[in-house]
Design a protein around this nucleic acid. Structure first.
Lengths: 212, 212
DNA sequence: ACCTGAACACCGTTCAAGT
DNA sequence: ACCTGAACACCGTTCAAGT
């Protein structure tokens, strides 16, 4: 009977993908799964648990498959693969990042993803006591970036608004001096890559410093 | 009559502080402000707009007061002040970070905060085309860190859960090797400071590299 | 001009009742 | 064992009606 639970989950994810998280009501999910709203409860518990399972089902898809023979690519390549895999997933499911921020992330799948990062950082030579902090820093940046894009926090209106403010007398010397660059349309993939490379460079430099 | 608008806003923020964002319903806000729910609409427009104003009112408190004589502290001190000021605010109002991620942030107050960061980065010697990216990176980290803490994404359950998983056969070599450090209770203020210093160090190093 | 009451179309969830 | 219908206590929002 776990078939039905999976079907309910699939219906919920499809609804969120198509019409946003607000469209995920128990009644709507039920209708899509061919049931009444009340029939969901024995299968998914409560709505909060349903949301947990939705994120869980995504998180399980993040970590790239691992080499079983212990060889595999180096730590940097692995972290790049992980970051881009997460980014691709959040782009397909823009409702997920906010949800990941707002509920604890302690499912087996989440733990597996964290462990993947731990191992890469250890292989990089990061001193053990620093590894958990750097994992949190990296995951926060990836998640925060995805949430910002999905929620529209980064946006071209910012510049237009700034220009209007400036006309109305509020001085914005920073925006003024950067006007030339603020007009360019941003390539978010390129920016994500630059940020990621910066962080990886920083980790590498920190390792080199601590080794000497 | 803007008195009443402010009173409504204050009521909404107080409710969110005390009982979380879910407690902010039009009916509850109205009751707290001594009105009926319907009386709010002429003053705040719609609920979405009310939420926008709530965040806006917080964001306006973030940037530290500026030296008007043009002297003032150096860029690093200013960015530290900004970061800690934001952190303090989000700790008092834990409902705010998620909201900031999920709605565009184009109010005059937000723009003023961004401009503050732009100027600090320019003073640091960051090449102009890089400034907007680094502002987004820094603000994403600060916001993401606050959202993670508030939402419980960082949490000690993680380790307990991991240990249980390990017993059940799922191998988590990373957690296993770090077990000693994962048992320590984390000082989040210290971790925030370490992350912030890392980013500022990185900016400084990048500037030095581009100058040579 | 400002506020209210009743109403509409929704929610998540409970529970007795059906098969 | 599994599902349903009716019901409860909520939502945000509209609109005619009151002062």
């Amino acid at each position: 009977m776990d078939d039905k639970r999976q079907a309910i989950l699939d219906a919920a994810i499809a609804l969120a993908d198509e019409n946003g998280l607000n469209a995920v009501s128990m009644r709507a999910v039920a209708e899509r799964a061919g049931l009444t709203a009340m029939a969901l409860y024995p299968h998914v518990g409560t709505k909060a648990e349903l949301l947990d399972e939705m994120v869980g089902s995504l998180v399980s898809q993040i970590p790239p498959p691992e080499a079983t023979d212990g060889a595999g690519p180096d730590w940097r390549t692995r972290l790049q693969a992980l970051a881009w895999s997460a980014r691709r997933l959040f782009r397909e499911h823009p409702w997920a990042p906010t949800l990941l921020f707002s509920r604890p992330y302690v499912t087996p799948d989440a733990t597996r993803t964290v462990d993947y990062t731990y191992r890469a950082l250890l292989d990089a030579g990061v001193p053990e006591p620093q590894v958990p902090r750097l994992e949190r820093m990296l995951s926060t940046l990836i998640l925060g970036y995805a949430a910002s894009e999905a929620g529209g926090r980064f946006g071209q209106e910012l510049d237009r608004r700034a220009r209007r403010e400036q006309l109305r007398g509020q001085p914005l010397p920073g925006h003024h001096r950067l006007a030339r660059w603020l007009e360019l349309r941003v390539d978010w993939d390129a920016e994500f890559e630059a940020d990621l490379e910066d962080v990886l460079d920083f980790i590498e430099a920190a390792v080199a410093r601590s080794a000497s």
